[in-house]
C-alpha cells in the first residue's frame, strides 16, 4: 500500500513537473496523460474504481486527444531555448506557486480532521449512481447538479462548434 502510494505520488508529481518544464508541447501533453493516470491510480487506492474508470476514459482518453488535436492545429517552429517557453514573470510565478503549495500543504496537514478511516465512500456502482441522482439517503442537490452538468455539456458542444467554425470573411483573408 505504501509502496503503491509512493510510486503513484512520484508519477503524478514528476509528470506534472514535466508538463510545466518540457520544451516540446507534445511532450507536455503526454506528461499530462501520465499525471492523469497517476491520479486514476489514487482513485483506485481511495476505493473509487468507478471514478478511476471515468478518469481514464475522459481525461487520459478524450482530453488528451483533444489537446493533441489543438497542438496539431496550432503548431509552430518549436522554441530552441528553455527561456523562450516561459514568460518574463517566471521568478515571481515560481515564488507564488511555491508559497501557495507550502501554504496549502501546511494548512491541510495541521488541520485536525477528527476520526478518519478509509472506506467510507460509495464503492459499488449502484451506490454511486444513487449518489449522482440524489436518490435514497443522499442529498437532493445532486439531482439538480446532474441535470445542470448535462445542460453545460450541451452548451459547451454548441459553443465549441460556433467559436471554432471558419467564417466566410476569414476565408478571404
Amino acid at each position: 500500500m505504501t509502496v503503491a502510494f509512493v510510486v503513484l505520488a512520484a508519477l503524478t508529481l514528476l509528470a506534472g513537473l514535466g508538463v510545466v518544464l518540457s520544451r516540446h508541447v507534445v511532450h507536455s501533453a503526454l506528461f499530462m496523460a501520465a499525471s492523469f493516470l497517476g491520479v486514476a491510480g489514487f482513485f483506485v487506492m481511495l476505493n473509487a474504481p468507478v471514478l478511476a474508470g471515468f478518469q481514464v476514459l475522459i481525461y487520459v482518453g478524450a482530453v488528451t486527444v483533444l489537446v493533441l488535436f489543438a497542438i496539431m492545429f496550432t503548431q509552430r517552429p518549436q522554441a530552441r531555448s528553455f527561456r523562450l517557453i516561459l514568460q518574463r514573470q517566471h521568478v515571481p510565478g515560481l515564488l507564488a506557486a511555491l508559497g501557495l503549495g507550502v501554504f496549502l500543504a501546511y494548512v491541510l496537514a495541521i488541520q485536525d480532521w477528527g476520526e478518519v478511516s478509509p472506506g467510507q465512500g460509495p464503492r459499488a456502482v449502484e451506490d454511486f449512481g444513487a449518489l449522482l441522482l440524489g436518490a435514497g439517503e443522499y442529498p437532493d442537490v445532486f439531482a439538480l447538479l446532474f441535470q445542470l452538468g448535462a445542460v453545460i455539456l450541451l452548451i459547451a458542444t454548441i459553443a465549441a462548434i460556433v467559436i471554432s467554425r471558419r467564417r466566410r470573411e476569414e476565408d478571404e483573408l
Binding site: 502510494f5 505520488a9 503524478t12 508529481l13 506534472g16 513537473l17 508538463v19 510545466v20 508541447v25 507536455s28 499525471s35 491520479v39 489514487f42 481511495l46 489537446v67 489543438a70 497542438i71 496550432t74 523562450l84 517557453i85 516561459l86 514568460q87 514573470q89 517566471h90 510565478g93 515560481l94 507564488a96 506557486a97 511555491l98 501557495l100 503549495g101 496549502l104 500543504a105 491541510l108 496537514a109
Partner: peptide, 25 residues
Amino acid sequence: AYLVVGALLFAIGTYGALVRRNAVV
C-alpha cells in the same frame, strides 16, 4: 498524505499556468 499530494499538484499546475507562454500548455 493524499491532501499534501493534491496540494503539491495544485501548486505545480499554478506554476505552469503562471509562467508558460503557450496557451495550450
